[in-house]
């Protein structure tokens, strides 16, 4: 799906837990997530801390969308 979106000219950032799969699939901007059943959350945290964590991942994804890249790039933690 990332490739088809990228193909029409829209930059796309892939937030995912298993980065090697994303690389294989062909995503260009990749932001690693927390865990498979809760990529943008952590049920062990308080509601506030969890939302702050989610916000930090989304902000990283926005940063990735603003970054010029020349090939597949993983925006590390």
């Amino acid at each position: 799906m990332v490739k088809e979106i990228e193909r029409v000219g829209i930059p796309v950032v892939h937030i995912c837990t298993v980065v090697p799969i994303s690389l294989t699939v062909g995503a260009n901007r990749i932001v690693p997530a927390i865990a498979i059943p809760h990529p943008l959350g952590n049920p062990a945290m308080s509601k506030e801390d969890e939302k702050a964590l989610r916000r930090s991942i989304v902000l990283k994804a926005l940063k990735a969308l603003e970054t010029e890249i020349h090939g597949q790039t993983v925006f590390e933690k």
């Binding site: 029409v8 930059p11 796309v12 950032v13 892939h14 943008l40 994804a61």
Partner: peptide
Amino acid sequence: AATFAQELVKDGVQAVILTST
């Protein structure tokens, strides 16, 4: 994705955040 990507273009979407589990 090929189908909805066309809609995204038509709707003037400039960027996509795609999440996977």
